[in-house]
Amino acid sequence: MSIASLTDPITPQGGHTSFDNLDHWMQGRTLYGGASALIAYTAAVRAFADLPPLRAGQVAFVAPTGPEVELKREIVRQGRNVAQVRSEIWCEGKCTLSAFWLFGTTREPNATHPAARVSDWPGPPEEAEATMTGKGPAFIQNNFELRKAQDISGRGEPVVRRWARLADREGLDPVSELILLGDVLPPGAMRAMQRQGPISSINWSFNLLDTAPETRDGWWLSENASQHAAGGYSSERLRLWNAEGRQVLDGMQCVAIFG
């Protein structure tokens, strides 16, 4: 099973962990960012079973991550309502991913303001045209289904929007599902690049707007939008909505633009 290859080897004890059959999760010479973030998150929640719901995450992609790792995690602080947990992936004696997870209980609200509905609604995923079939890196071809959610193509407004779902979601809780697919699209700055060249995610920070997200038939509307690109880097806003157009995740990312 595809998902099991990422999560089954992870134990509450952490430490040295070996992953098999990860070729279909690779992005060049490293593990796809969403997959490595899921490993770090799973290591945290399996080590500390009584954590409240996840509210936010900050993930730094430090160096390429391979199949032989050491998993480290610790509770930095745990209060009455909020727990903050650090988890790291180490390969060959060096840190390759560092993540900080914020968990928090639900409290009586003193402020209520729902996120705005998605603008430029592309229509339901069931009516959208498939895209990237047989194209792109191995992790997309083997693990995701993508469908068009915008009319533009090629250079133009630096926004990439697609319907996305995992081909195999069996046994995966909704929060882990969002972590796994939250980084699936290329940066919006891709549409502003003067020529083709490699790109690399450096970090990813996100807030969960719903601790128990739901959608229809596994489809999520994913959008990466470059807010500013210069000097070889792009500041990106990453958002996810469910199939009804309700936002469930709001994030930011720094991306290196080479070439």
Rank of each mutant, 00 (worst) to 15 (best):
D250M: 12
W241K: 02
T7M: 05
T42Y: 02
R239C: 14
G232M: 05
E244Q: 11
S36Y: 02
L6N: 12
R86K: 13
T105F: 00
S5E: 08
R161I: 01
L172N: 00
T96E: 03
Q194T: 15
L209M: 02
S87A: 10
W163Q: 05
F103A: 00
V76E: 14
E214V: 08
T105E: 13
P137H: 11
G154M: 03
A138L: 13
D8P: 00
V255A: 13
A47K: 08
H113L: 15
D210T: 03
N203F: 06
M190D: 04
G15W: 03
L172K: 02
E70W: 10
F144I: 09
S234K: 09
N110M: 15
M26L: 14
G33M: 09
P187N: 12
S153V: 08
L180M: 09
E170H: 11
A83M: 04
F19V: 07
G104M: 15
E129Y: 09
L166W: 03
G218S: 01
A128D: 05
E157H: 09
P124M: 07
L97I: 10
K94G: 07
E157M: 08
E177C: 07
E214C: 07
M26Q: 13
R117W: 08
R155V: 04
E214L: 06
I140M: 15
E223P: 05
S18Y: 06
V160D: 05
G57A: 14
R239S: 14
R195G: 09
P64G: 13
W241Y: 06
N110D: 14
L102I: 14
P122Y: 07
D8K: 02
